[in-house]
Design a protein around this nucleic acid. Structure first.
Lengths: 202, 202
DNA sequence: CACTAAATTAGATTATTATCTAATTAGATT
DNA sequence: AATCTAATTAGATAATAATCTAATTTAGTG
């Protein structure tokens, strides 16, 4: 990671208001107004901080009518921290997937699948055909999504396209393996099954 | 971790000069003058930045004659990042040892030993008697020390006392298991054997 | 098209901070 | 005591950045 990216990451996090915003967003997505209210600040101030957080890629935004909803980009929050620590302690900078695994359950399998199927730039090289491996990849996607949030089909497609062009297949697989469920066009994470389906395969 | 500690941590890291200082220190300890020279800055500026880094506990200092040598506090650098990420993503804040394991080799054994033998406050509850476990603990200590740096016996004692009162035993064990070597009163990490001795026990 | 609700942009103010030079202190050595 | 070296403190300056109010823009709805 380059120095200025690291600086931007830590500057973004080095402010109490922005940290509070991130903590609020970790529970659920929020509109600008809600944040202003909860933090006792004006809307322009929220816009200001949101811009900093966006520059450091720590949040994502979606617009619904004229309301903008903010949510965390969990991957970049986690990865920024790890990449910085690695850069400073000059450890070998593993591929992104490898680094992102601050997972408490430490599955060799999981790590090797992720680092084999994802490229350095973070994209999925191919969809694994072996069931066990495919589920690991699907679970990885599910982890990037926000529990409790409702997604439009279009949003899901765009999310998946960040990783792989065949969004239709992957979207269907997410449903089939019960990482998500769909109700008249609206998608939502299925929190319970997220872990269990994977556990059963071990 | 409290909010203001998190802010201090990220503010300390959110400056290019300070990041450069940390990166320099990761290779070896440095005096204030050396840092000023290497970074093309005045000595007072270094003092200023050192103060910020010290407040966030990211560096340690030792005085020799009238020269002050700075070095990294690797533990707090790593732990600050992880504790912040955990606080934001509101994961369970595991005990410090558990958190500090951004290890690439993912040994269930290792993690469970560390989290069983270290208390929440980071201190060693007791010295494991079983060889395999003892070596894991010793390796953990060795990782906190700086490769290439020469330590006085007094310094080693003080370092160990942060974790456990019986510094004499632990210091002897570090030598016996070849994590460190001693040459007329001066202690130094033994970089080669650090990993290998542990590998052999698996 | 007029109106509304939310967000953003502009501009001003105030507080923080990075950096320097000059003065002082700390810790030896002669 | 006088001197030397490294570090710190004091004080000044210039750049950043947090926050506000007022004006503008965006995306609707009646």
């Amino acid at each position: 990671m380059q120095l200025d990216k690291m600086v931007a990451y830590h500057k973004a996090m080095g402010d109490p208001t922005r940290l509070r915003m991130l903590m609020l967003l970790s529970k659920q997505e929020r509109s600008g107004q809600e944040l202003a209210e909860l933090l006792h600040l004006s809307q322009p101030t929220i816009t200001h901080h949101a811009a900093k957080l966006r520059e450091a890629a720590l949040i994502k935004e979606r617009r619904e009518k004229n309301t903008v909803y903010f949510s965390l980009d969990r991957y970049f929050i986690e990865n920024g921290a790890l990449a910085s620590v690695n850069a400073i302690l000059n450890r070998k900078e593993g591929d992104p997937m490898e680094d992102s695994a601050v997972l408490t359950k430490n599955e060799t399998m999981r790590k090797s699948v992720l680092s084999n199927f994802f490229a350095k730039d973070g994209r999925l090289k191919q969809i694994p055909s072996q069931l066990k491996k495919k589920v690991i990849v699907l679970e990885y996607f599910a982890q990037q999504l926000e529990p409790g949030r409702k997604y439009e089909e279009k949003e899901i497609n765009e999310f998946i396209k960040r990783y792989h062009e065949d969004y239709a297949t992957l979207r269907r697989e997410l449903i089939m393996h019960q990482f998500m469920y769909r109700e008249n066009g609206i998608y939502e994470l299925n929190p319970q099954t997220m872990w269990t389906s994977w556990q059963n395969l071990r």
